[in-house]
Every structure is written in C-alpha cells, then in structure tokens.
C-alpha cells in the first residue's frame, strides 16, 4: 500500500542527512563566508574547536544523560562495594547464631544497632547481615560467568563468523547442540558431578552452558561487519587476519555482545539463586541469597520476611543489571529503540 507507514528510504530521512555533517566548520564557513575552495578550512578559534568524538564517546555522553543508567550504576556500584567489603555495611557475623533471636521474635528498635533490623532467621542469624554477605556469591557468579561466556562465546563467534566455511559449520553445530540444553537442567546435571560445590563450580557450570548465546550474537555481528567496505578496504591494503579481526571487526562487532552480556548477567545471578534454592548450587555454610531463600521457605507461613529480604535483594540486583543493559543498548544503537 503506498499510503501507509512506508519505510522511507534512508537518504530521505532528513535526520540522517544532518548528522553526518559536523558542523563547526560549516558553521564557521556559514558565518565568516570565507572561501571554501577545496574545503580546506582553518579552524577559527582553537578554543572553540569541538573535541574529536568517537562513537564510544558519543555513547558515553548519551548514557550520562539517562536516569535509568544513573540509577542502575549507583545500585551496581553499591552492590559491588557490598560484595567486596561486606564488613563496611554490617558489624554482625552472618554465621553467628543466637537461638534467643529466632524468627519468632519481633525485632525492636534495639536491633537497629545490633544489626538485626531485618529480623532473624530460623537459626537466629541476622537476616540483614546474611543479605549483605550473600551479595558476594551472587555478584561473583554473575560477573565471572559473564566474563567467561563473553570470552568463550566471543572467541567462538569471532572464529565462526570470520573464517566461515568449515569452521563456521562446526562451531555453529556445536552451538546448536549446546543451545538445545536448558541452562538450569544442564547445570543441575553438571553440578551433581562436583563433590564439593563452591562458587567456582557454579561459575564453571554456567559458563560451560551459557557461552553459546554470546557466540551466536558475536557470529552474526561479525558476519555483518565483515562485509563492510572498510573491512574490504583493509584487505585491499594488505592487512593481515589479526589486524582485520582486532582493529576493524572486533571494535565494530562488540556492541551487541556487550548489550546481551550485560542483560544476561542478571540471568546468571538468578540461575545461581535458583540452583542454590534447589539445593544443587551453593550450600551452607556458603552464604548466598539462593540458599537463604531456600531455607526461608520452610518458615514462610510464620515469618514471610525471612524470605522477603534475600528475595528482594536478588530482584533489585537483577533489575539493576537489566536496566544497565537496556540503557547501554539504547546508547550504542539508537535504532533499536
């Protein structure tokens, strides 16, 4: 139908025609009206000269203006601080069990100073202290798994997308196979193989199963970028494989990977909590939100707050990373909005 929302061809988009042209020299030409033969222009005033801005720079400028980004950044920085220095936020030992203080005792104002202002769990441990100390496991798993999958998936995707042909066929088929395994179910099976389960075994299990998502994103992105004229131009200049990969393709292909990885980070934190909840992830005495949620379910009728606080901490953390991912995506690719 010629009369509905037609995709207007790119060059008809007035906005597109404006942005590529930077402006201060035009401005300068416009106002001074000097000869612009051969477009050789001399800057009028060095102080006024606009900073050279890279696309990353633009994205950063854009990000700083987004409230969602600011809120999520503050949250994430706080969470990381808590994870690294839990002692700064509570003086209470999260493992100290005082059966006088069990979940049936209502917290009163004295608890505010004693570190028990979220109340106490079934074994009389301060819920507040446990929420604070539990951050470390969640954040560690989230960040380490994300780093690992970005690295693994990124390399696999880069190899598949860049070399194509057989290596692509093989890597893509492996990716497909892994993709068919549900993350949680797969992790359940894998973790059963570990006799002692620590944070690191959870990281290994999740990374082993999670890299395929990133590999796919990376592969698609690399294939798109590989066809760009500037990569062809690089080849025409005689650039070798590593230069093409790391100088031309990677910087242009990485943006969607970063976005997906940031959003996936929240998912890994949830996965860790879920595994711990199911009793197959982390175990007591490791302190983790998942473990606490799991033990809280036994007393949910009598004391719902025992469940509420670790669950809320988990939700806020996941939300913060997802918001951050959204903001980064919007900044890196305005077209996705």
């Amino acid at each position: 139908m010629p009369d509905r929302n037609e995709p207007i061809p790119d060059d008809h988009d007035p906005l597109r025609n404006i942005n590529p042209t930077d402006s201060d020299h035009l401005d300068y030409v416009g106002q001074q009206g000097l000869a612009v033969e051969q477009e050789t222009l001399i800057e009028p005033d060095p102080a006024k000269r606009e900073q050279a801005r890279s696309l990353w720079g633009d994205a950063w400028r854009d990000l700083r203006r987004r409230p969602i980004f600011l809120v999520s950044t503050v949250l994430i920085v706080l969470l990381i601080l808590i994870a690294i220095f839990p002692g700064l936020f509570t003086g209470t030992d999260p493992r100290a069990s005082d059966l006088i203080n069990n979940y049936l005792r209502r917290p009163d104002w004295t608890d505010f100073f004693g570190g028990g202002w979220f109340g106490y769990d079934g074994q009389g441990r301060s819920i507040y202290a446990r929420v604070i100390y539990g951050a470390r496991a969640s954040i560690t798993v989230g960040i380490c798994v994300t780093l690992a999958v970005t690295l693994l998936g990124g390399m696999a995707g880069m190899a598949a997308g860049f070399f194509g042909g057989w290596s692509d066929a093989v890597i893509s088929r492996i990716t497909d196979i892994f993709f068919g395994i549900p993350l949680l179910l797969g992790a359940l099976v894998l973790l059963n193989a570990f006799s002692v389960r620590t944070v690191w075994s959870v990281v290994i299990a999740l990374a082993f199963l999670g890299w395929t998502q990133l590999a796919r994103v990376m592969r698609g992105s690399v294939i798109t970028v590989k066809q760009s004229d500037y990569v062809v131009a690089g080849r025409a200049l005689g650039a070798g494989t590593s230069r093409l990969m790391f100088r031309h393709i990677l910087p242009n292909a990485i943006a969607p990977v970063i976005v997906v990885a940031t959003i996936a980070l929240g998912g890994y934190i949830t996965a860790e909590a879920t595994l711990s909840f199911l009793g197959i992830g982390l175990q007591d005495p490791t302190i983790s939100w998942g473990v606490d949620i799991s033990s809280a379910q036994k007393v949910i009728r009598q004391a719902p707050f025992v469940l509420f606080f670790p669950a809320a901490a988990l939700s806020i953390t996941v939300l913060a990373f997802i918001m951050m991912g959204d903001a980064v995506r919007d900044a890196l690719d305005p077209k996705l909005r």
Partner: peptide, 24 residues
Amino acid sequence: IKGLPPNLLRIPAGCAFNPRCPRA
C-alpha cells in the same frame, strides 16, 4: 560549486546559499 550543503541545524544567516555563492 564550492563548499558543502548546509547543516540544517545551523542554516547560514541570510541567504542559505551565500557561503557557496560566487555572487554573495
């Protein structure tokens, strides 16, 4: 024609073509 088409964010004052015009 010398110069570049104008940036619509900052259209030159007066006649928009004046920076490129031989008769300006």
